[in-house]
């Protein structure tokens, strides 16, 4: 196995090799072990400073990154666009350059514009971790999803995964497709035609518009949220109609031939894409995903920080 990542940054899954992904997953095993110790903190990154720049709202990802950073003993500064000079008209580069002038080693950034992380990596001399850029990529989410599948099934290879819902606006979907395919899984997307992008066929994924057929095919269903904040045009008549066609309830789950595993990247709109009963059932690994998120982010930070000295 390789001992370092081929990339200086984590901008997306597309730029990672299969070996990179496997290195991150196996390193995360060790961090998961650390997280179950009485003392959950290790000193590795005690001389590293990390800035979390969130130009878009986030609960899980921000908390998860911050916890991972603190567990590694890094110094952490947080930045939220809503309470900053961005609202006074400062550009992205200026904001970040000013933060870096305060001697920051790693930048974790979420931004509403696709490509923001790549743009930053080209213009500043610091490690960048993409924590979600618009509808483009969300690499750590895909890594923790793959890790959770590997944890449950032993490996990702040859597993059948269906991603259900708003594929068009989802960075989770795109990163998951890249990650799962690199690890040898079969991927299907399922949703209304209006929420499946036209280019999807170029990614070598199956497309299905009937939820039952998709669920009968798969081992794992990743149920995405309808991104209400990104719907600039009406892509479906109503939430109620979406739920009737693509919402997963217990009745449907029980009627399937196989006992499939349910995943969700959060936040859940309970009663829309999945019912509470499904989310809290023994087939759901949603909370395992959250727990694994911290271990995955610790692994990414640990591997990337290794050559910041």
């Amino acid at each position: 196995m390789i001992s370092r990542l081929s990339s200086k940054h984590l901008l997306g899954i597309k730029g990672l090799s299969k070996e990179d992904i496997e290195l991150i997953l196996s390193t995360a095993d060790n961090f998961k072990d650390v997280l179950n110790r009485p003392v959950k903190k290790i000193p590795s990154l005690r001389d590293v400073t990390i800035a979390n720049l969130f130009f878009e709202n986030s609960t899980r990802t921000r908390l998860s990154f911050e916890l991972a950073e603190r567990r590694l003993s890094a110094d952490v500064v947080n930045f939220a666009a809503s309470s900053s000079s961005v609202s006074k008209g400062e550009t992205l580069i200026d904001t970040v350059k000013n933060i870096l002038a305060m001697k920051v080693d790693i930048v974790v950034m979420r931004h509403p514009n696709p490509g923001a992380a790549v743009f930053l990596a080209k213009h500043i001399d610091s490690k960048i971790i993409n924590a979600g850029d618009g509808a483009h990529e969300h690499p750590t989410q895909a890594l923790l999803d793959a890790y959770s599948i590997r944890e449950k099934f032993g490996e990702v290879k040859n597993k059948r995964v269906v991603i259900v819902g708003d594929i068009l606006h989802s960075r989770v979907a795109l990163s998951n497709i890249f990650c799962l395919q690199k690890l040898g899984a079969e991927v299907m997307v399922c949703g209304p035609t209006t929420l499946i992008p036209k280019y999807i066929s170029s990614l070598n994924v199956k497309v299905e518009h009937n939820l039952r057929k998709a669920l009968e095919w798969c081992d794992i269903a990743n149920m995405l949220r309808i991104q209400l904040e990104r719907q600039d045009t009406k892509n479906f008549p109503s939430i109620r109609e979406y739920t009737m066609m693509y919402g997963l309830n217990m009745e449907m789950l029980r009627s399937l031939k196989n006992k499939i595993t349910i995943m969700h990247p959060g936040p859940i709109n309970r009663g829309v894409e999945i019912t509470s009963e499904v989310a809290d059932s023994d087939q759901s690994i949603i909370l395992n995903q959250v727990e694994n998120g911290v271990a995955i982010r610790m692994a990414v930070l640990y591997l990337l920080a290794a050559d910041t000295y």
Binding site: S3, N30, V34, A306
Partner: peptide, 21 residues
């Protein structure tokens, strides 16, 4: 017991991957 995360040469030499504790 794996000691990788407590080494004092992290970021001073090639990364050493952890073993199992």
């Amino acid at each position: 017991l794996d000691i990788t995360f407590h080494r004092d040469d992290y970021r001073r030499r090639d990364i050493i991957l952890p073993s199992e504790t």
